[in-house]
Design a protein around this nucleic acid. Structure first.
Lengths: 335, 335
DNA sequence: TTGTATGCGTTATCAA
DNA sequence: TTGATAACGCATACAA
């Protein structure tokens, strides 16, 4: 049996198309008796309004899209989960896309989204040294009055609502925590030193040192490029007792350093404490477990979704918001 | 500026609506010259066909939905990734839903999907002791000629295409692997002993023992209910040297057992070997790393998507397929 | 309270 | 090769 329409109900009950339509949307123009007949019959034949017809007519769309770099990244999975919950509860369908850190794939996705199937877009762009092209496409989307919320990875000069964690405060707080544990020779390992996020975490680290009256030592700041120099670098610093703690910005490298230190027979945290960044379970299962910055992915997802829905439904011209979400420190055995 | 339509192009170029429509779909009825004028102008004003109008008219839908228990589960994240890739490449949009192991949420999702917005559905149902209700809803969806592919968690008596891993073979192979490493006292820890999957892994384990001419010992089969008895159970078995290896079906419990054994000063794998199930990175980071069954989530996702698209586009009445995907063993230091 | 007529933007059929 | 017209299914302004 093919999908029933209003006309089927009309024929069966004897009422006109418009009466059916009004009754089904519970309009007060229609008498209770008529409504009940119509609704009962609609239920019986399992009538559902045709999605495309009604949206064409009303030109309101309860579809949104999200573009995420990588769903295998636990943080982004959490964001997606939070966003999905919020959208679902508010009656929106969520279409998912993953750019897999490929700018060209991202362009294809954005190209497709210009077909007008969505009412709003959440995006965390692919790492992209030449962010111009993508900005152009995003602007085209905005031209169609489709609001955009950018989360986590922010393109500085692009104008839209933004949600991101407070990177400055996160590393600032780590420094304070380490100092409270008696550490003062704190290294910072960063594989993303050339990004905005990396820069801000670096700044928070420096400010933390300053507040604690510790002199900044450039030798203890280790920006990683190819990623193959950590081993020797850390070994050198640790063996010469130049450091008593390490902050590492990327989770897998954090675990690698953790391993390395154990292999070198250092005691964690007595000799060297270690702190990383992740929302995932990885740090719970190392021995000793690793203290980490929690980025609250689910909350970021939920909040971004809320902001987006608000823009869609109120279509207001208020200034764009920039929500800086604080992180928290999950303290484990490594500090 | 609001979204341009065919009418805008018609007014600007002087051709009729239908000519525009045909030209834009590259119909051979239209002359090259006319086409080029129209296409050029369409590009200039950045015309995109209205999604809803065109789908209402053509009544073909390039939207599919996927329902997954939990996106934070690495395996399901991989499935989603694989499926998304396949759908995207074939021009389909993918709407994501997570049931979070809640039957009532799943019902809500299915209810919503009956609005006809999708051409097909991929689903791995929530754990559900009373699977009747959900089957009814799925049948309603099938009544609308919307094909369904069920993956991973199969509802036995529901009729549709199915994709799942070969659970029997996976545990069978583990036993063979352990025996090849000189192990013969093999325990099986299963927190899902009451599911079909758990049952099949158990059967594969028994068959493996049989083939290797090892007597089955019921003491070495440890079905977990509340999950708080493993510690003492494992301690007892390990200390009395009743076991020389452990197969564990759930990743977090695997790591817990791993920890426990190290704390009891057993050598892994010399004293006791250990094997788990996961697609995730967790087992790479323990010391020693843990041998694991790889469930090929991405492949499962891709394959399911392919099957679904095939059903949608060919709408054939061929018998339903049941794809049993083999697993593979990633051998690490724990065996 | 109910019914009639129209249009949302496309595409497909048929006529010119 | 192009254009007029109808139809997809629904929702609304207006008439009855």
């Amino acid at each position: 049996m093919s999908k029933p329409t209003i006309i089927d109900i009309s024929k069966a009950t004897g009422f006109s198309k418009s009466t059916i339509s009004k009754a089904l949307s519970d309009s007060k123009e229609i008498s209770k008796k008529t409504k009940s007949i119509i609704v009962k019959y609609a239920k019986k034949i399992n009538y559902k309004p045709n999605f495309y017809a009604s949206h064409l007519r009303k030109s309101i769309v309860k579809n949104v899209a999200i573009i995420i770099p990588d769903i295998l990244n636990y943080y982004f999975a959490k964001v997606l989960k939070g966003a999905q919950q919020e959208f679902f509860n508010r009656g929106y369908d969520l279409m998912c896309f993953f750019n897999e850190e490929s700018v060209s794939k991202e362009k294809k996705i954005l190209e497709k989204l210009k077909n007008g199937s969505i009412a709003g877009l959440m995006i965390s762009p692919a790492k992209n040294p030449f962010s111009k092209k993508i900005s152009e496409q995003l602007i085209e989307i905005q031209d169609y009055k489709i609001p955009i919320v950018m989360f986590d990875r922010i393109v500085g000069d692009f104008k839209c609502d933004k949600v991101f964690i407070d990177d400055f405060q996160s590393s600032f707080n780590i420094v304070k925590h380490l100092v409270s544990k008696g550490k003062r020779k704190i290294a910072l390992v960063s594989p993303i030193h050339d990004t905005l996020i990396g820069k801000q975490r670096y700044d928070g680290y420096k400010e933390g040192l300053k507040v604690e009256k510790i002199d900044y030592d450039d030798d203890l700041y280790i920006p990683l490029n190819s990623g193959n120099t950590i081993q020797s670098e850390i070994t050198k610093l640790a063996s010469s007792k130049k450091i008593d703690s390490i902050i590492c910005i990327e989770q897998h490298i954090t675990v690698a350093i953790h391993s390395l230190l154990l292999n070198l027979n250092f005691n964690i945290p007595k000799d060297i404490a270690i702190v990383g960044f992740t929302d995932g379970p990885l740090f719970e299962y190392t021995k000793p477990s690793i203290t980490s910055v929690n980025q609250h992915g689910e909350y970021i997802g939920k909040l971004s979704a809320k902001i987006l829905i608000d823009r869609i439904e109120n279509n207001n011209d208020l200034d764009f918001v920039e929500e800086r979400v604080p992180t928290s420190l999950t303290i484990r055995k490594s500090t």
